[in-house]
Amino acid sequence: MLELRLVQGSLLKKVLEAVKDLVNDANFDCSATGFSLQAMDSSHVALVALLLRSEGFEHYRCDRNISMGMNLGNMAKMLKCAGNDDIITLKADDGSDVVTFMFESPTQDKIADFEMKLMDIDSEHLGIPEAEYHAIVRMPSSEFARICKDLSSIGDTVVISVTKEGVKFSTRGDIGTANIVCRQNTTVDKPEEATVIEMNEPVSLTFALRYFNSFTKATPLSNTVTLSLSSELPVVVEYKIAEMGYIRFYLAPKIED
């Protein structure tokens, strides 16, 4: 028996909007720790890892570890039917091939349930070790989204370089080139507006912009985004989900031949 009641149902709606274009089908894993997902995009260069901790749910019952295969497009369609203020409850019986989404309005005057078929998904799980990164950049998520969108109108790839001067996002295309430098800026009114750069050593990596633009669909989940970069590792683009967990995107760098 699985029963997860999330008072801030809009979080789950935002999560689905963030991942549905990157991954078609995925297994949601439910355990005592929480509700999680790990899935790769079809080309196996990007990976999304989601964790919503059990403590973040108002009610969390998961009698045994369960993996539920879902089509994320269909799940997003169902969750779009929930109001932004609705409480969302996920329910599944042991051995069942369906999951039920229950939506309750805050005043309890409207209750809806939607039943979705589960799927068998043969997904490849990757072990992601804890790593020391050469540089970690925290910046406003809206600023990062703006940079990715602006650069993708000029080129297809972005070079992210972190030096003691700041973090530079560069692209080049048929019409020309673009460079955007963000300097560390911690003297802002609100901490979420700060750009903070922790650098152990300079790093410069090249990525496909279309993946970054896909990752920025998670912007509504968090005011800030963290980029963790190392020359030998995929970048980690992390959006913290307040008091619940995180959504992390991993993207393998492009390698010069």
Binding site: M40, S43, H44, V45, A46, L47, E124, H125, L126, G127, I128, P129, T157, T206, A208, E232, L233, P234, Y250, A252, P253, K254, I255, E256, D257
Partner: peptide, 14 residues
Amino acid sequence: DIFQNALVAYFDSK
């Protein structure tokens, strides 16, 4: 020319 590496080049399959 630049190539895109797959994630399995970095992370082990469980």
